[in-house]
Write a protein that binds this DNA or RNA. Structure first.
Length: 423
RNA sequence: GGAGAGAUGGCUGAGCGGUUGAAAGCGGCGGUCUUGAAAACCGUUGAAGGGGGCGACUCCUUCCCAGGGUUCGAAUCCCUGUCUCUCCGCCA
């Protein structure tokens, strides 16, 4: 949620322009109508409450030696009016709240305007796409050849868009996870193991609800959602907290399974494990002081890139354009890894700075000696990295003509010395 | 799953249905004292929303787990839910 301040007359022009870059047209008339309506009703409610409190207090003074039935009746009358006003206030607040919850975060000024992912700007390219002197296979073929990736049994037990890893590929997957976590811990992140089922409040806190309900798996009976990313449980750890300044920044790394319905992705990436309902991800989350937000995004990106550098995989970094940036984010970098089978770069990490957008929803604040009131924190997160896609990238980039896979140098210790994967 | 206990401010912990937004202690902040620090002493110290004033500020409403109810009036009484703890059962 945005700071309501940005809708005040002095700022609203800028706000309208900013939101329009995303394609969001702010209904200014409706907004001011909703605000005025709520304010008016609220003042009326408070006057009535004040009346009631005054008279009740008067009763307490007089009740011992005076007849107070007139006063009592008066309060009863007030309460009757209060009841209807209260429901009106509630309706007005809800309407305004719903309106606010639907407005995306303001874009950072450095974000460029664009219509789709085709307009994202390549910031840098690291390494070069490998040149193969043979026709590279894709991970599906390689995985079957190595008896390491099993779709048919996964489909049998869970349906499409699920996958089973087995044998050496399962081990390689586990090696990747451990390598990523260890690397991040060495750079100052605290390792967490968190629940993958969360309450609705948590999903609201980080912005997956109310707008994106179709994207998640939800356990109706228990009113719990399967997390689409570790961002949800980890970031929500600071929900309703007032932190002290010296607790910041908080830097967490969490490895979890993630679950997505992929509702809008029918027919997209149907082959292989690029887009599945259940996948694994190592996630980085930062809770920081507002003035540090921008720098922390850059270092978060560096930390995510570091994994690809160490794995010696070719990648590039793109800055997302105005219409490709997520609803809650004010600025996002994607890291894309080169996949030989597709001869293109595919997203493997997304690093975002949310400003106070999530913090306001979560009421996540910190106390600073510079301010009288608690201040909202900034939240950031980024994949470090998506494990399944990393596995795909390793398999495809390190494949040999005979279909075997060279184990990347940094993973060899995690493979207990194994240097090559053969059938 | 069965039985019981509990949920109060940053923390610990009081709280007869009527100036209790809430005692006390701890912590935090400011000050006195000190060469400095500690100790001691004094003062101060919750949040959200709204109104008014250029402003230091001031006024009002709400908040004692959540949601209902009783009452002129609820932290306090009643119901429901959530969570925590203890015991029993079951189980990884």
């Amino acid at each position: 949620m945005n700071d309501p301040q940005i809708f005040h007359p002095q700022q609203i022009e800028d706000t309208v322009i900013n939101l329009a870059k995303r394609g969001y047209i702010l209904d200014r008339n409706l907004l001011s109508e909703l605000i005025e309506r709520k304010k008016k009703l609220q003042i009326e409610e408070e006057i009535l409450q004040n009346n009631r409190n005054q008279i009740s207090k008067e009763i307490s003074f007089k009740i011992k030696d005076t007849d107070v039935s007139d006063l009592k009746n008066h309060v009863i009358q007030i309460n009757q009016r209060l009841e209807s006003i209260k429901s009106e206030v509630e309706a007005a607040s809800k309407a305004l709240e719903a309106f606010y919850l639907d407005i995306p975060n303001l874009l950072h000024h450095s974000v460029h305007v664009g219509e789709s992912d085709a307009d994202n700007a390549v910031i840098k390219t690291v390494g070069h796409p490998k040149v193969f002197n043979f026709e590279p296979k894709d991970h599906v073929e390689l995985g079957q050849h190595l008896n390491g990736i099993n779709f048919s049994d996964a489909v049998k037990i869970s349906g499409s868009r699920f996958v089973i890893l087995q044998g050496q590929i399962a081990k390689l997957n586990r090696a990747l996870i451990s390598f990523m976590i260890d690397t991040h811990v060495n750079r100052g992140y605290t390792e967490l193991n968190v629940p993958v089922l969360v309450k609705k409040e948590a999903m609201y806190g980080t912005g997956q609800l109310p707008k994106f309900a179709d994207d998640q798996f939800m356990l109706e009976r228990d009113q719990l959602s399967l997390i689409p990313t570790a961002e949800v449980p980890v970031t929500n750890m600071v929900r309703d907290e007032i932190l002290s300044e010296d607790e910041l920044p908080k830097k967490y790394v969490a490895y979890t399974s993630c679950f997505r319905r992929e509702a809008g992705a029918y027919g997209k990436d149907t082959r292989g494990m690029i887009r599945v309902h259940q996948f694994e991800k190592v996630e980085l989350v930062k809770i920081v002081k507002p003035e540090m937000g921008e720098d922390e995004l850059e270092s978060l990106l560096t930390d995510a890139e570091n994994i690809l550098r160490l794995l010696e995989l070719p990648y590039r970094v793109v800055s997302l354009c105005s219409k490709d940036i997520g609803f809650c984010s004010q600025k996002t970098y994607d890291i894309e890894v080169f996949l030989p089978s597709q001869n293109t770069y595919r997203e493997i990490s997304s690093c975002s700075h949310f400003g106070t957008f999530q913090a306001r929803r979560m009421q996540a604040r910190y106390r600073s000696p510079h301010y009288k009131k608690p201040q909202l924190v900034h939240t950031l997160n980024g994949s470090g990295l998506a494990v399944g896609r990393s596995l795909v990238a390793v398999i495809e980039n390190y494949q040999q003509p005979d279909g075997s896979i060279i184990v990347p140098e940094v993973l060899i210790p995690y493979m207990h010395g194994q240097k090559i994967i053969t059938p």
